[in-house]
Design a protein around this nucleic acid. Structure first.
Lengths: 188, 188
DNA sequence: ACCTGAACACCGTTCAAGT
DNA sequence: ACCTGAACACCGTTCAAGT
C-alpha cells in the first residue's frame, strides 16, 4: 500500500492540524507533526499552504464559519451567551482567531469570514435602532461578549465559575449587569 | 573586558526580551536571541528563569503593574479609555498578558498582579453600588474595555479608526453606546 | 499533486567543566 | 551567579529528483 495521498489533502491537513491545535495550543502546532498525523511527507502540506501561518489562517477561517453558524439562530442576550459558549467549547481555536498570532489583514478570506460573523451581530440590532446606532451598539455588544470570553478563558473570573453551571449563570449575570454601568458613568 | 555580567541580570534579560517582544511578537521572542542582546551566554538566563514560559510570565507580570499604574488615577469612562490606550500603546505586551499563551494559573505572581489590576476596577464601582452589584458591574466593564481593546488591536473595526484621533473618538462612542444595548435587550 | 531524502539555520533544553 | 562549548531533538523552509 502506497503512502501517496489521494483525495483532498487540504481537508485532511486542516483536520489533523485542528486536532493538534485543540490538544497542544497554537505554539504546539507544528507543520511537521501535522504532516505526520495526516500520513504524508513533511513537505506535502506546502502544496496547499505556502507556510505555517497560512495553515493557521485556514483553521481560523473555518472557525469564523463555525462561529457564524453558532450565532445564526439567536439574538439579543441569547446570542451573547452563544458567543461565549463558542469560545469555551473551542478555546484554542478562539484564541487562534482572536489572539493576534495572525495578521488578519494578510488573509482576505479571513477578513471576509470575520466580517460576515460580525455582520450577523450588526443586523440583529437593526430592528431596534437606526444604522448609526446599530453600528455603535453592535460594537459595544461584540466588545462585551468578546472580552468576557477572553477573560473567562484566561481564568480571571475563577471564583465565579467553578463549574459549567456556574459559568452559564455568571455569563447571564454579566450580560445583564450592563445596566449598572450607566449609573456609574453618569455619576463619574 | 570580560563578558561576565555584573549586576542585575534578571532585569537586563527582561529589558532585552521586552524589546524583542515589541518588535517581533510573542512567537518571535526566543531565549537565545534575548541572551545575545543582553550580552550573555545562551544559558545564562536559566539562572533566573527555568524556561521560556517563565520569562514570558515575567514580562507579563511587569505588564500588569504597568496597567495598574495606567488605571490608577482615573475612573468611569476615562478609566475605560485608559485601559484601551494601554492596549494600543503596548499591543504585544497586552497580547502576551491576555492572549492565552500563558497559563496564568501556573504563576502565582502573575495571578496576584492581574488580581490587583482588577481590584482597582472593582473599587471604582464601590461608591455607586453595593458589593454584589459592584462585582457584576466591574466584570461587565472589564469585559467591555477588554474586548474592545482586543478587537481594535486585531483590526476588526478598521473603517472606524483609520488614525489615532479616529480611534479615540471611536472608543468614546462605543463606551457611550452601552445604553443602546439596554433597549435591544429589553425587546429581544 | 504528491513522494523521498538531504540540507540549512534556528530553537529550547540539558549537560560538563570552568571562574 | 555567571561563563564556554558541546550535544540532543525538534522546527520551518528550501532544494533536487522522482512518480
Amino acid at each position: 500500500m502506497s503512502t501517496y495521498h489521494h483525495g483532498n489533502l487540504r481537508t485532511a491537513v486542516l483536520k489533523a492540524a485542528s486536532k493538534i491545535l485543540e490538544k497542544k495550543g497554537i505554539s504546539g502546532l507544528s507543520l511537521r507533526e501535522t504532516a505526520r498525523d495526516a500520513g504524508v511527507s513533511h513537505n506535502a502540506p506546502y502544496r496547499h499552504f505556502p507556510d505555517r501561518e497560512s495553515l493557521l489562517a485556514g483553521i481560523a477561517a473555518e472557525g469564523f464559519s463555525m462561529l457564524g453558524e453558532a450565532l445564526k439562530s439567536s439574538s439579543g442576550k441569547a446570542m451573547g451567551a452563544a458567543y461565549v459558549r463558542f469560545a469555551l467549547v473551542h478555546p484554542e481555536r478562539f484564541r487562534l482567531m482572536f489572539g493576534g498570532s495572525l495578521a488578519v489583514g494578510k488573509y482576505p478570506a479571513l477578513r471576509e469570514a470575520a466580517d460576515r460573523a460580525y455582520q450577523a451581530l450588526v443586523d440583529s440590532f437593526r430592528p431596534h435602532a437606526d444604522a448609526q446606532q446599530a453600528q455603535v451598539a453592535a460594537a459595544a455588544a461584540w466588545s462585551l461578549v468578546h472580552g468576557l470570553s477572553h477573560l473567562i478563558l484566561d481564568g480571571h473570573f475563577a471564583p465565579a465559575q467553578r463549574d459549567a453551571a456556574g459559568t452559564e449563570n455568571f455569563v447571564r449575570q454579566v450580560l445583564g449587569g450592563v445596566r449598572y454601568l450607566l449609573g456609574a458613568q453618569r455619576s463619574a
